[in-house]
């Protein structure tokens, strides 16, 4: 299987922020969720992938081509929508659709009309009259209807009301059913990522702190509640919090023999539960370690 994109040793320095030594791959047909707090470097990473920003160091391959040298060919097959990307306020959505259709031969007008209906957008309305949610949906429509091989979505659901968010996620799920399409979407909403992604990458303060399959991610982590006096200091324990005799530990690289090992330490294991992605992310960031 070939890579939809491959970033190797990417560095990008700004006065207040630096993306450091990021190496990340996405296989064709995969959906990757890029999770990070605001300012983690998600947008910069996506901008590097689309050629909007040039990396100071490192190599960028997108759809088998080198960026930014081959950006024209790459951008023919890439759909990019960003939270801070705007359309022309004075023009209608139809005007934008016609502009995109005239540039991308793969524009699917039937699908575009279907999306107009599903997103409840009026094509003859000027963008100035659109709400934030409608603007986001319009941008996504312009991306999806060109049928790109790689979709790069920067915070596609941020700031949307629950209904708009649900509409966008539903359409995104449909788009993701197409196995030939690869998607990288960034979010600080781990619920969206957990719902849609095949693999998950955590970015924090410009560094990639974790990247692996979602299932393995979720399998690897457990929240164990036990009681007793001992507080084990094992490397797989990312966080241990004691409240009296109750000890809550969050474990990365969980193995089936762990409860026995805890019992051997004189602890009584009360529960072993899988963790939600949000909890894993927060624990990883707080632990300052690799997940």
């Amino acid at each position: 299987m070939t890579a939809a994109f491959a970033l190797t040793g990417i560095h990008k320095r700004y006065p207040q922020f630096a993306l450091e030594d990021v190496t990340l791959n996405l296989l064709d047909g995969q959906i990757m969720g890029l999770v990070g707090v605001n300012g983690a470097g998600k947008t910069t990473l996506l901008r590097i992938l689309t050629g909007l920003v040039r990396a100071d160091r490192g190599t960028v391959q997108v759809l088998g081509l080198s960026m930014p040298d081959d950006q024209v060919a790459v951008k023919r097959d890439v759909g990019f929508a960003s939270e801070d990307m705007r359309l022309y306020k004075s023009q209608t959505l139809r005007w934008h659709m016609d502009l995109i259709a005239s540039i991308y031969p793969g524009w699917d007008e039937v699908y575009a009309r279907d999306l107009l209906r599903r997103f409840d957008l009026k094509s003859e309305q000027t963008i100035a009259g659109f709400s934030h949610g409608q603007r986001v949906k319009a941008l996504l429509l312009l991306c999806f209807a060109r049928r790109p091989r790689l979709l790069l979505l920067d915070e596609p659901t941020t700031g949307l009301d629950p209904v708009a968010r649900s509409e966008v996620l539903e359409v995104l799920s449909d788009v993701l059913r197409d196995d030939s399409r690869s998607v990288l979407f960034s979010s600080h909403n781990t619920h969206d990522v957990e719902q849609l992604a095949d693999s998950i990458s955590f970015l924090h303060r410009g560094r990639l702190i974790a990247s692996q399959d979602k299932e393995r991610f979720l399998d690897d982590w457990r929240r164990i509640v036990c009681h007793g006096a001992a507080t084990p200091q094992w490397p797989e324990i990312a966080m241990a919090r004691r409240n009296g005799s109750v000890l809550e530990i969050k474990v990365r690289g969980y193995s089936a023999d762990m409860p026995e090992r805890l019992i051997a330490q004189g602890l009584v294991v009360d529960s072993v539960d899988p963790m939600r992605l949000e909890d894993i992310f927060v624990t990883t960031v707080r632990a300052g370690a690799v997940a």
Partner: peptide, 17 residues
């Protein structure tokens, strides 16, 4: 200022284009 530049630059064009 209106942040439409990113939209234009996301089209299949190079900086020279």
């Amino acid at each position: 200022r209106d942040q439409t530049l990113a939209f234009v630059m996301s089209l299949p064009i190079s900086p020279l284009d």
